[in-house]
Nucleic acid binder design. Structure first.
Length: 350
DNA sequence: GCGACAG
DNA sequence: ATCTTGTCGC
């Protein structure tokens, strides 16, 4: 039985292709405008990446996308000068001679009348709905075993003709003994990665494969009382990181751990080894920063996913460190998923 | 100049 | 996340 969350993930590449096809000859738009038409300007970096790596043919309108400054930017089917030639042929005046100076007058040519249903807005709605289901339950007992999950990727294999193919995702689940950090059991799952990485939308890239992984874990009778996730929980602009999604979807306690702060404010000056400091977001504590090692002052950031509170999430992360920067379940899940992804790549390369 | 955003 | 060589430091 497919999970209700999975079919709701849109085909963002197709949505973007549809938007591109709407830009008429003689007009241009910007990467940011396209991202807004998708529903969130934060996606503009992915739009730029898509512009340079999508499967391109002669009918594609991607040469009609320029930077917010009016500068032409890069082109998938040649250099910036080739992009300029195509625009000139369509009646757009390109100023400047050196490629990095070439620009168009956006006041004159910008097209922004997109027909769209804003797919990323719908995903934000899903995040708000999910946040309302999160329960921050008090907990004190560290269970005898703790699980960690992480996802790695194979670089997309590029054919000699230059067409790009889909990345493959590899998800790993590692069960660790909480007294000594040794690996008790592990498993992995692989599948194509369809949704792109867009910050604050990581859930829609990785939740489908994590749910498939959890199904496999359940069939093997290896469910765990608490799962650590390489991603954040309520430490998220909409209080709905991937650890919260996984916890609610799988109805299990989850703890989110990240290496780089996603949002919120925290004072990390002069932290002592294993000290923790609150991460605040809109006057509310959403997690904690922990200095995990003696050597580096660089903290990790922990937050509740579901069915745990901030104190438990913090204490669990501390207890699972065993001297490493990352809690042992996540360290092992990272190593395993990465090594399987590496082998997948070499198999596909030959 | 400011802000800078998981994997 | 992945791409990447040597280099620096314990």
């Amino acid at each position: 039985m497919p999970h209700p969350l999975v079919p709701l993930v849109p085909n963002l590449a197709k949505n973007l292709g549809d938007l591109l096809s709407q830009i008429p000859a003689g007009r241009v738009t910007t990467y940011g405008r396209l991202a807004q038409a998708l529903g969130d300007s934060i996606a503009s970096r992915w739009v730029g990446h898509f512009g340079l790596h999508h499967s391109h043919d002669g009918n594609c309108h991607c040469h009609r996308v320029v930077r917010a400054t009016g500068h032409l930017g890069l082109y998938v089917a040649g250099d910036t000068a080739a992009k300029a030639r195509r625009l000139s042929k369509e009646g757009v005046i390109v100023e400047g001679t050196r490629p990095e100076e070439m620009r168009v007058d956006l006041n004159r040519y910008e097209f922004d009348d997109f027909q769209t249903d804003y797919p990323l807005k719908k995903l934000r709605r899903l995040q708000h709905d999910l946040a309302a289901k999160v329960r921050l339950s008090r907990r004190t007992r560290i269970p005898p075993q703790v699980a960690g999950v992480d996802v790695s990727y194979t670089p997309s294999a590029r054919g000699s003709s230059g067409e790009s193919s889909t990345d493959w995702a590899v998800a790993a689940y590692v069960l660790v003994d909480s007294d000594n950090g040794s690996v008790v059991w592990s498993t992995t799952v692989s599948r194509p990665a369809v949704f792109p990485y867009i910050t604050t939308y990581l859930t829609f890239r990785e939740l489908p494969i994590l749910l498939e992984l959890m199904k496999k874990v359940h069939r093997a009778g290896r469910d765990c009382p608490v799962i650590m996730v390489d991603g954040t929980g309520i430490l998220h602009p909409r209080r709905a990181g991937i650890a919260s999604f996984l916890g609610v979807a799988a109805a299990q306690p989850t703890v989110g751990v990240i290496k780089k702060r996603l949002c919120g404010r925290v004072d990390i000056d002069d932290m002592r080894h294993l000290e923790s400091r609150p991460v605040m977001l809109d006057e509310q504590q959403v997690g904690a920063a922990i200095r995990p090692t003696r050597g580096s002052h660089r903290p990790i950031f922990v937050s509740p996913g579901h069915r745990v509170d901030i104190d438990f999430a913090t204490e669990l992360a501390r207890r699972m460190l065993f001297g490493r920067r990352l809690p042992q379940p996540l360290y092992e899940a990272d190593r395993l998923s990465r090594s399987v992804a590496r082998n997948l790549r070499s198999r596909n390369t030959q």
